[in-house]
């Protein structure tokens, strides 16, 4: 299901930039952040307007610096400011966090999430949909990311323990990794994010959970991929049908669970910038698969919204395969007759 929005990260639309301030006293760090914000604007259109922190709607700050803790408390109490923590670690309940060691890519990903969240709030305020039943994977993932240790639960069918710090993902019960993963996939495929609960747990609860779990052979980002790629009911992160997307790089399919259609989508979006409907029509892959693919690539940080310089795929154009489709089908049939997805 793809919802539409009147606001989007797109250079083609007219909208007001959001005032953003950097409340960092370390000059080198501040300049680096400001440079990243300018780069973000260059890539995705003028989303942000750099302003003094006092006038900003979004403020990047460090709790380790003088007055940082006080600032955070007042920002959390006052709903008008969106605080974004810039530090080595996020020890607070603040949902937005830029890992100091993560470079400009980490910073841009967080900024994109913040923008989408602000956008969504504006959009949602005009809707009557119940927030707690949202199928949007974005707040779901943000919640997991914001908690150091969490338990992901669906009735008594699924229980996963996640430790963001140590990057551990443990799936309860099945001793075999493949069974654990299959179970995980099935739940995300059929249940939908909206029905899955995320709760914060203590260190001892995590250790207890870990003891009765098999440790999945998954990095945290691959775990997020697993969730998103299997979530057939998800709406898009960037909730607009009109945006054109492209991939900055190929997902590492040697490690990520996938189907052939995801590989075709990667080839398509790596080559062309296109909106969901065009991608779906030209590749013959259902729109909901395109959405889950874009969500999953977004979580890996490799999906971008196309700028004017991208090669766009228009509705009138058609793909020009370099080999007959029958050849592809024959080879694929053989290649994967023993492969278990």
């Amino acid at each position: 299901m793809v919802t539409s929005s009147t606001e989007e990260i797109s250079s083609t639309m007219v909208r007001q930039p959001i005032p953003i301030g950097v409340r960092i006293f370390d000059e080198i760090k501040r300049k680096r952040l400001e440079q990243t914000i300018r780069m973000f604007n260059k890539l995705k259109g003028d989303i942000w307007q750099l302003t003094p922190a006092g006038d900003a709607q979004v403020v990047i700050f460090s709790p380790e610096e003088a007055g940082g803790e006080v600032f955070l408390k007042s920002a959390l109490d006052n709903n008008k400011i969106h605080p974004v923590i810039y530090a080595k670690k996020n020890n607070s309940t603040c949902p937005w966090f830029i890992d100091q060691a993560g470079g400009s890519l980490a910073c841009m990903n967080t900024l994109a999430d913040v923008f989408r969240s602000i956008n969504k709030k504006k959009h949602k305020s005009t809707e009557s949909s119940a927030e707690n039943k949202s199928n949007d994977i974005n707040p779901f993932i943000n919640r997991i990311k914001s908690l150091t240790r969490s338990q992901i639960v669906y009735k008594n069918l699924l229980s996963i323990y996640v430790n963001v710090d140590s990057e551990e993902v443990c799936i309860e019960k099945p001793q075999l990794n493949s069974i654990a993963l299959d179970k995980l996939r099935k739940v995300f495929e059929t249940i939908g994010i909206g029905n899955i609960e995320v709760r914060e747990i203590s260190s001892s609860e995590f250790e207890e959970g870990k003891a009765k779990s098999s440790i999945a052979d998954l990095s945290l980002s691959n775990f997020f991929w697993e969730m998103a790629i299997n979530d057939k009911q998800a709406s898009l992160f960037d909730e607009t049908k009109a945006s054109k997307y492209k991939l900055e790089r190929w997902p590492n399919f040697t490690r990520l669970q996938h189907k052939y259609e995801h590989v075709v989508l990667a080839a398509f979006f790596r080559r062309f910038a296109a909106d969901i409907d065009t991608a779906s029509a030209k590749t013959g892959i259902p729109a909901e698969v395109v959405v889950s693919f874009l969500n999953a690539t977004h979580l890996l940080g490799i999906e971008v919204i196309a700028d004017e310089n991208s090669i766009s795929f228009t509705k009138e154009a058609n793909l020009t395969p370099k080999a007959p489709k029958t050849v592809m089908q024959k080879v694929l049939g053989t290649l994967f007759k023993e492969k278990i997805h």
Partner: peptide, 10 residues
């Protein structure tokens, strides 16, 4: 698999 997908997309 990705070689085939590349051929398909052209």
């Amino acid at each position: 698999e990705s070689l085939l997908a590349m051929l398909e997309v052209g």
